[in-house]
Amino acid sequence: MKYTSQEIQDISSNFRNVARRLSRTDYSQCDANLKRFIKLVDNEPIIKEFIENHNKHSFDIEEIISSRELTAPFNVSPEIDEEISFEYQLLKYAIEKYDGDFTRLYGTHWYTSFKSTVNDEMSKFINHIIDPLIDFIGDYLRNCYDKAICDEKKNEPINSGGITANYSTVVVAQTVGGAVSNNVEINEGTVKQALEIVATIKSTLLEENSKIDSDVLDVLNQIEKDIKENNKPKKGFLVALKGFCSGSAAVITLINSLIKLFSIV
Rank of each mutant, 00 (worst) to 15 (best):
I64Q: 04
C144S: 12
S58L: 13
N187I: 08
T71V: 08
K154C: 09
K124F: 07
D139A: 04
L91V: 00
K124P: 00
G178N: 01
Y98F: 15
L70E: 14
V180E: 08
K97T: 05
K147E: 11
T169E: 11
F59I: 02
I163D: 06
G189C: 04
V172L: 15
D60S: 14
L195Q: 00
N182I: 10
E87D: 12
V191C: 12
A165Q: 12
V191E: 13
I126L: 07
E83C: 05
F125W: 09
Y140A: 01
L105C: 06
G100C: 01
E152I: 11
E62P: 01
I201S: 02
N143L: 15
G100Y: 00
L141V: 05
I64G: 00
I130W: 07
G107E: 05
C144M: 15
T117D: 01
H128S: 14
P78K: 11
S66F: 05
T71I: 13
Q193C: 13
L141A: 08
K202G: 03
S58G: 01
T190S: 06
G100Q: 00
F102Q: 08
E69Q: 14
F114K: 03
V118T: 06
F136S: 09
I84N: 06
W110R: 09
L195A: 00
D99F: 13
V118W: 04
N182D: 05
E83R: 10
E87H: 10
E83K: 10
T169N: 11
T190P: 00
I84S: 07
A194E: 03
A179I: 14
R68H: 10
I130N: 10
V170T: 11
E87K: 14
L195F: 00
D135T: 12
I158F: 14
D101M: 07
S85Y: 05
Q193T: 15
C150G: 02
T175G: 03
V198W: 03
V184D: 13
W110S: 10
A173N: 14
G178P: 01
C144I: 13
N187E: 12
I84L: 06
Y111P: 06
E121H: 00
